[in-house]
């Protein structure tokens, strides 16, 4: 299903886009199974309409929006972002959406709001992977409010000129391109503004391996593998050396969000 959007020239990345087939058949979305081929096969059971998303917590105007309202809330833009998975591979994907800040402005965070928490749908009937106890469901992710308000943080409703395929987090997800992929919560049903740092799914499951921040950082290795390099899916074949991973995945404009912070400690 087509989704019209104008290219935002500020994010018209000059890198080869990942093939649609790779981007839609190689996914980490544990609600649909832990194998990366699983979501493409099992996500058909997800019903993306009707869909509502509730925004509440430390806000002056809590809000529940359906998908159509969400699609009309701000002009849709196309943006090409690099996506770096914590597992050491990467893709380049043309997303469609608008800055999350547009939505956050509407609900008017209170003075004590410091974090934004995203919750993924938690319905065993639609998501077979929820039967397996690999994570503490529902999947929760979070950002600091200033991170969430950064123009790069994209409330995402489509990719490749279409609405999001189910396995990529339909009907609405976020995309935070300077952080490892798992920080970008999929199939979101609730956005909550909080005073305290949210308990996020992977940080909860393995705090020594996955930090709350999880910024792409070639200098901080995962305990089980190096993060210094990555394999670009579809481009870096078996006989190509992996490419160097860039600090903040190349989005150096976010560096000021972390000035004065020890990113080895707050990894």
């Amino acid at each position: 299903q087509k989704l019209a959007a104008a290219m935002n020239p500020a994010y018209a990345l000059m890198e080869k886009k990942t093939a649609y087939k790779d981007a839609t058949t190689y996914n980490n979305f544990y609600e649909f199974g832990t194998d990366k081929a699983d979501p493409a096969q099992t996500a058909g059971s997800l019903k993306t309409r009707p869909w509502t998303i509730t925004i509440d917590g430390e806000v002056k105007k809590p809000l529940t929006l359906d998908l159509d309202a969400l699609l009309k809330l701000a002009p849709l833009e196309e943006r090409i972002y690099r996506l770096r998975c914590v597992e050491g591979w990467s893709m380049v994907i043309p997303w469609i959406g608008y800055s999350l800040s547009a939505l956050l402005k509407k609900i008017e965070p209170t003075g004590s709001a410091r974090y934004v928490e995203f919750t993924t749908l938690d319905d065993k009937k639609q998501m077979p992977g929820l039967h397996s106890p690999v994570l503490d469901w529902p999947y929760v992710e979070g950002l600091r409010l200033d991170e969430a308000n950064h123009p790069l943080t994209l409330l995402t409703l489509g990719m490749y000129g279409e609405v999001l395929p189910n396995q990529n987090g339909a009907p609405v997800r976020i995309t935070v391109p300077w952080k490892y992929g798992f920080k970008s919560a999929k199939s979101i049903v609730r956005i909550r503004l909080t005073r305290d740092q949210p308990r996020t799914a992977w940080n909860n499951a393995a705090p020594h391996e996955y930090g709350f921040y999880s910024n792409v950082n070639p200098q901080v290795d995962h305990p089980r593998w190096s993060q210094a390099s990555e394999r670009r899916i579809g481009e870096d074949g078996l006989f190509t050396r992996k490419r160097k991973t860039l600090m903040f995945n190349g989005y150096s404009e976010v560096a000021s969000l972390y000035s004065g912070m020890d990113l080895k400690k707050f990894f």
Binding site: D22, T25, Y26, K36, W89, I233, L238
Partner: peptide
């Protein structure tokens, strides 16, 4: 071999 041949093999 899929999107990530190294991983597959």
């Amino acid at each position: 071999l899929g999107a990530n041949p190294l991983e597959f093999i």
